[in-house]
Simulated scan of single mutants.
Amino acid sequence: MLIHICCSVDSHFFLEKLQKDFPEEKLTGFFYDPNIHPYSEYQLRLLDVKRSCNKLGIDLIEGEYDYENWLEAVRGLEKEPEKGARCEVCFDKRFTTSAKKALELGEKKITTTLLVSPLKSQEQLKRVGDEFYASHGVEFIAVDYRSGGGTQDQSRVTKEEQLYRQDYCGCIFGLTMQRDQQNRLMDEMFSPISGQTLPASIEERLEIYTQRNALEDEGKKYKIVKQKFLNYRQFNCKLISGKKELLEAYALSYSTLPRKKAQGRIEFSHNDVHFFNREEIKFITLQTYNNLTDSSYKSIKELIYNPLNFDEEQTLRATVSDSNYDLTPIIVVNEIPQTKLSIYLDAKTYQDTKEKLIIFS
């Protein structure tokens, strides 16, 4: 039997149940999910699915990540709600590809872990699966592992196995509507040009779960926990002199301006920190930045494209501001400008939750 797999939270429990209910069947997993966006999220879910299949002794095949073709397939259905017409087209595409893969492998039965997802309609999935049985001759096995306490058992398995628990189906359109309804920033779509790993980002999770797998290979004990914290995303920063000249500038993380703009001048300096006369803004030179961080940046541009990691920046912020709770802008420049300045800074702080890996000695 070929099993289309969407994620480890659904697949681990689902595959365990299939192994028990179909002991004579050789189960083969097929990870085909071109709807998942961004690609880093796809990589993270695949990483966790590989781990699950390996633990359960199930072969896994990775399908093509043909995201552009998926976008074309759902064109015009972007605003459809979850479980609506877009989902049905998405199922059609994934079932078609899964059915073709089953035929290629000589399998006569297919099913999907989507059946156990509380976000999906089992009736919708069964209808689409039956249509493919009629057209392709591959039987769709519509098992119901959600009823009879199945959802609670699935949650137990997810916790026991410390699986990656994503909080959206994977589709960018579903995510957009979900975040709009929650009035939350869609920070899954943020990836800075610097490549810096941001807190609670998909890239940070990918690092954590990759390290988790390495710890298991080494036989080390660990625990993945969650913690609440103040998160931060910066959208843009621009510094303009009184002569309308754009100056090279870099704003440290957690730099915020309530009205996104401030105008004024450098008022005084102390210990190589230069104080603006508006919004408590502070300036330091690139040379001071290098001295305080033991770095050797030669230009602001180099700093923008290859900054220190997030934790190192926070250490620098605490040094410059003498505070662990400082949110004022700290701007790095080549030289301290003596003219009137306009600072444009669009950034957001917000309450969030992130994973943390605890390693037991």
Rank of each mutant, 00 (worst) to 15 (best):
Q287F: 15
D311T: 14
Q314M: 14
L303Q: 03
Y289H: 13
K301S: 13
N309Q: 11
F310D: 10
E312G: 04
E302Y: 05
S295N: 11
I304N: 13
I304D: 06
P307I: 02
E312V: 06
F310H: 15
N306L: 07
Y305M: 08
L303D: 08
L292A: 15
D294I: 00
D311M: 04
N309R: 12
F310Q: 10
I304R: 01
D311N: 10
L308N: 13
N309G: 06
I304S: 11
L303K: 01
S296T: 06
P307H: 00
T293Q: 07
T288S: 15
D294Q: 05
S296V: 00
S296E: 12
N306E: 09
L316F: 03
S296I: 00
I300W: 00
L316R: 08
Y289Q: 09
D294N: 14
I304A: 11
D311F: 03
T285L: 05
N291E: 12
S299L: 00
Y297D: 10
E302W: 02
P307C: 08
K298S: 14
F310M: 10
I304L: 07
Q287E: 13
S295K: 04
E313Y: 06
D311K: 15
S295E: 13
S299V: 02
Y289N: 13
Y289E: 11
N309T: 08
N306R: 05
L292G: 06
K298I: 03
N291C: 05
N291Y: 08
N309Y: 10
Y297H: 08
Y305A: 10
E313D: 15
K298V: 06
K301H: 12
K301P: 15
P307A: 09
N309F: 08
S296G: 01
I300Y: 03
K298R: 06
E312M: 09
D311H: 07
N306F: 12
D311P: 03
L308V: 02
T293A: 04
T293M: 01
Y289G: 09
L292C: 14
Q287D: 15
L303I: 03
E302R: 04
N290C: 07
I304K: 04
I300N: 01
S296P: 04
N309M: 03
P307L: 02
Y305P: 09
L316K: 09
R317G: 02
N290I: 01
N290W: 01
E312C: 05
Q287P: 09
N290Q: 06
N291V: 08
Y289F: 12
F310I: 15
I304Q: 10
Y289C: 11
L286G: 12
E312Q: 14
Q287L: 08
S295H: 08
Q314W: 08
L308Y: 05
Q314A: 03
L286H: 01
R317W: 01
